[in-house]
Simulated scan of single mutants.
Amino acid sequence: MPPNYEELKKSINRASNWRERFDAVEELGKWKHKRIIDVLVYRMNNDAVYKVQEAAYRQLKNFGEDVRLPARNEHELIKDANKVWSRIKKSLPADHTYEDFKEKLKKMRLDLYDTYEGDKGADFDKWLENTWATAATRRK
């Protein structure tokens, strides 16, 4: 077991930081132990960011575990995310900009922001701007 196991276990469960989860998976992959395998199996099957799932899968395969990479979730990564986009958009002034929306999303729901940013990669800004543009607005 790594000497910093408890710290890595906290990092691997940080909902609002996919990079920290990814790095923790990579670090834990250096230590083959039943508890670590259990943590990696859980992360492989349950992380919202596919890059983290892939990293956990890769580490488990390196350990010789008989695992299958889950299919990539092409739908809503976090339950009711569509409602959140609309709520945030409706909470802003009618003449707000995409940047206003993006900043408020970061402040209110960093977990959502981080998860989708990790999932979409280089296409994140384009995807988020489209999501903002199509989200429900205030009724007039």
Rank of each mutant, 00 (worst) to 15 (best):
I36T: 06
F22K: 08
N4C: 08
K104C: 07
L112W: 00
F101S: 01
E103D: 15
D114E: 14
D38K: 13
Y113S: 03
P70R: 07
T115G: 02
Y42E: 15
M108E: 14
Y5E: 05
E27G: 06
R72V: 09
G121D: 04
D38M: 08
F22I: 02
A24G: 03
N73G: 03
V52M: 04
R72G: 05
E6S: 11
K9H: 13
K10D: 10
V84Y: 05
K89C: 02
S11F: 07
K10G: 05
F101G: 00
V41E: 13
G29L: 00
R138K: 12
F22M: 09
A136N: 11
R87G: 13
D38T: 12
P3H: 14
K106S: 06
L110Y: 09
E117P: 01
V84F: 02
Q59A: 10
E20S: 09
T134N: 10
A48D: 07
W132Q: 00
R68E: 15
T97Y: 01
I78Y: 01
D123N: 15
R138Q: 11
A56T: 03
F63D: 08
K32F: 00
A135K: 03
V67P: 00
P2F: 04
W18M: 00
E117G: 04
K30V: 03
L77S: 02
K34H: 15
L110G: 09
A122N: 12
K90L: 04
F63S: 02
S91V: 03
Y42C: 07
L110Q: 03
N82M: 08
G64N: 06
T137M: 09
N130I: 10
W18N: 00
S11D: 14
D47Y: 01
S91G: 11
L77Q: 00
E103T: 13
E6F: 13
R14P: 02
A24F: 00
K51W: 11
H75R: 15
T131E: 12
K9V: 07
A81Y: 12
K102C: 10
I36L: 04
P93Y: 05
D95R: 08
E129A: 04
L92I: 02
R35L: 14
K9E: 12
Y113E: 01
R139D: 14
W31R: 06
V84P: 01
K104F: 04
R139G: 15
D111G: 03
R14K: 15
V67Y: 07
A133T: 11
D23Y: 11
Q59M: 11
Y57S: 01
E7P: 02
V41F: 08
N4V: 11
P2S: 09
L105F: 03
E99R: 14
K51G: 12
P70F: 03
L40A: 04
Q53V: 05
K126F: 08
A71M: 11
G121L: 05
A122R: 14
L77P: 00
K83R: 15
T137D: 10
A48Q: 08
F124V: 01
H75D: 14
